[in-house]
């Protein structure tokens, strides 16, 4: 028999358990690559150590936010436990847990290639560290968005919620959690490529740096669509006349935009990463490479926009 208590405690465990999977893997990759870098170039001892401490702190912050959500769910109290609230808490746990896993693994790849680059060029370490920190702070955006969505969902809890409201909040959580995965993979590939490119050719840094800031914003676009849709899902009311059809619409809208963000973000990351290598190899072709990358990314992003249109028309239907 499925009681609200079972779902509640499942949500409590799920958030931090899902989050710790990725953090474990990510911190392992990060520390491994730092030691690898040290064995290659022991003159860069201080710089590699500083990069490792900062990188590991970034990787860890995903699971820390998941822990905070877990503790708020466990000790926060508030409304009495009903079935809709328990279902909504599962949505919160999914959103924060999967986002934490995704960002941890993605930012570990940035740390990995930054360590390799610092081992190559220890006297250029500060610039590479800057590039890595900017990449990691942008990679971290999904879990912050998921955390904000979780807090917003929690602030809308009330005892008069119907099961349809609970499913609506669950769909917002699913939308956010699915929407995190693709952009994180794309950002990870791109951040890894850009840190490696700065290590390959330090004279191309002045080109790579603005290029990476622009491209990180472009790869992030599907995630912002997901944030928009999940905020709409939280605040739009369920139709009173046909609640079942309306709830199904909401769930499908969340799934649509969540799955639609996968391919676009990953391929945008691939394209930008490849172009970063080329900039490092031949910086004089920067303008051609920049134009081609931005144009191709505009085509790639268009499929995310199609899914956004379908999701919006499903919600407002």
């Amino acid at each position: 028999m499925l009681t609200p208590e079972i779902l509640h405690y499942l949500a409590v465990g799920l958030a931090v358990a899902l989050g710790s999977i990725g953090t474990g893997i990510g911190q392992g990759i990060g520390a491994y690559s730092a030691i690898d870098a040290l064995s290659r170039q022991k003159d860069g001892n201080d710089q590699v150590f500083r990069a490792m401490i900062i990188g590991l702190a970034f990787i860890e912050s995903g699971v820390i936010l998941a822990l905070v959500i877990t503790l708020i769910t466990l000790f926060g109290g508030g409304a009495t436990m009903t079935m809709p609230i328990a279902v909504a808490e599962i949505g919160i746990a999914l959103a924060v847990g999967i986002a934490a896993t995704a960002i941890s693994i993605a930012s570990s790849f940035a740390l990995k290639s930054a360590c390799q680059s610092i081992a190559r060029q220890p006297f250029f370490a500060q610039k590479i560290l800057t590039l890595m920190m900017l990449a990691q702070s942008i990679i971290e955006a999904p879990v912050v968005f998921a955390f904000i969505i979780a807090l917003v969902i929690r602030s809308n809890f009330s005892e008069s919620m119907t099961i349809f409201d609970g499913l609506k909040f669950l769909s917002a959580g699913i939308c956010m959690s699915l929407g995190c995965i693709g952009p994180c993979i794309g950002q990870g590939i791109f951040a890894s490529a850009s840190c490696q490119a700065a290590g390959l050719n330090k004279d191309a840094y002045n080109r790579i740096f603005p290029f990476s800031i622009i491209n990180e914003a472009v790869i992030e676009t599907p995630l912002i669509f997901c944030l928009l849709v999940s905020i709409l899902l939280i605040y739009l009311p369920i139709s009173e006349f046909k609640p079942i059809a309306s709830t199904i619409n909401f769930l499908v809208a969340g799934l649509t935009i969540g799955l639609g963000s996968f391919g676009t973000a990953i391929s945008a990351g691939f394209v930008a990463g490849k172009s970063c290598y080329q900039i490092a190899l031949e910086p004089e072709n920067y303008s051609v490479l920049f134009r081609t990358t931005i144009l191709s990314q505009a085509f790639i992003e268009s499929s995310a926009i199609y899914t956004l249109i379908i999701a919006l028309s499903l919600i407002t239907r």
């Binding site: 860890e60 912050s61 820390i64 936010l65 905070v68 702070s137 912050v144």
Partner: peptide, 11 residues
């Protein structure tokens, strides 16, 4: 802003 302050607060 959100990521800076939430990281400090959460940790």
């Amino acid at each position: 802003i959100a990521s800076m302050s939430f990281r400090l607060f959460g940790n």
